[in-house]
């Protein structure tokens, strides 16, 4: 490379760089926009091919099928429920633990931190974990979505590090006024932690909303515990190699829809429904999670 190019004009470099960036943005966005177009296009028309960024035969049948009250609609609410419940419990428990180990005077602060952090680097493995879940009678139970993941070591470190940056005087003076640690945590520390809690909430929510493996492993025999992602996975494996199969997707066979709704078109609409909530939220939290990642540093 040394032989040519003494120096490209800055303008040339900037245009080149901008083009690379725009190409990257297109590659990132195109599949998503394509899915959006397919989700609004009639299923029997999509099979003919040639749908790129805009639907050819507009329809909202694919979405009606999702929300028609069938299995997929039920799965949507299971996904919502597990996400909301897990985020609330997770935030509360993780931050309460983070507060305790952030107290310098606490005798067990260091041992507890080490014990929790070590869990980031090993796990007992699939089979022993499966037996634990089975012994706890959590198989085919809604709580299997909530209980196993209540504490995340990474999130605890992020919150603890944040608490340690708070002015010590605030906590000290609360204690002077006779508040115990729990009171101090609830009324002083927690309100100040909002930015870091927003980050952790996003991490937990994304993890819960996107989870499918626990359904597959622990609750696959119970249809009423199925989640949106799991329904999507079932459709994916049934239609991966034959986009053109015209059978009506399950939960969508409501007479009139006939060929309007195909596995491919309903998969597209579930994909949109499954990704939209997060895509709407994350740009607003960008500032926070970038910070959170830096606090966690290389600790992921």
């Amino acid at each position: 490379m040394r032989t040519r190019s003494p120096r490209l004009e800055p303008a040339a470099f900037h245009s080149f760089n901008a083009i690379v960036m725009i190409l990257l943005a297109i590659v990132t966005l195109y599949p998503f926009l394509n899915t959006l177009a397919i989700s609004f296009n009639a299923g029997n028309d999509t099979i003919r091919g040639g749908i790129y960024l805009w639907p050819r035969v507009w329809t909202s049948q694919n979405y009606k099928a999702v929300f028609a009250g069938g299995a997929i609609y039920h799965a949507f609410w299971i996904s919502v429920a597990r996400t909301v419940i897990a985020v609330v419990l997770n935030l509360f428990l993780t931050s309460i633990l983070a507060y305790a180990v952030s107290r310098k005077e606490y005798v067990f602060a260091k041992p507890i931190t080490i014990i929790v952090v070590l869990t980031m680097y090993f796990n007992a493995g699939l089979i022993p974990s499966y037996f634990l879940i089975k012994d706890l009678h959590l198989l085919n139970h809604f709580l299997v979505y909530i209980i196993p993941g209540l504490i995340s070591a990474f999130n605890m470190i992020v919150i603890r590090t944040y608490i340690q940056t708070l002015p010590e005087g605030l906590i000290e003076s609360a204690k002077m006024d006779g508040a115990g640690d729990f009171r101090t945590f609830i009324s002083i520390v927690l309100p100040l932690c909002q930015p870091v809690l927003a980050t952790v909430a996003l991490f937990v929510a994304v993890g819960q909303w996107n989870a499918w493996f626990d359904t597959f492993l622990y609750a696959s025999s119970k249809q009423n515990l199925s989640t949106l992602q799991y329904e999507l996975m079932k459709l994916l494996s049934s239609s991966m190699f034959s986009n053109s199969s015209a059978s009506v997707a399950n939960g969508a066979d409501k007479g009139a829809v006939h060929n309007m709704v195909t596995p491919m078109s309903i998969r597209a609409s579930i994909t949109i429904v499954a990704s939209l909530p997060i895509l709407v939220v994350y740009p607003f939290l960008q500032k926070y999670f970038v910070q959170g990642l830096q606090i966690g540093g290389v600790k992921e």
């Binding site: 606490y106 507890i112 929790v116 007992a124 089979i127 504490i151």
Partner: peptide
């Protein structure tokens, strides 16, 4: 530090149950 213990030790027990106890299964 009783309150700090109440705030952390039950959660520690939980971590033990879900992350450390299953290692017993390695005997299999």
């Amino acid at each position: 530090q009783k309150q700090l213990m109440w705030m952390s030790l039950p959660i520690l027990a939980y971590v033990f149950l879900f992350s450390y106890y299953p290692i017993w299964g390695w005997t299999m």
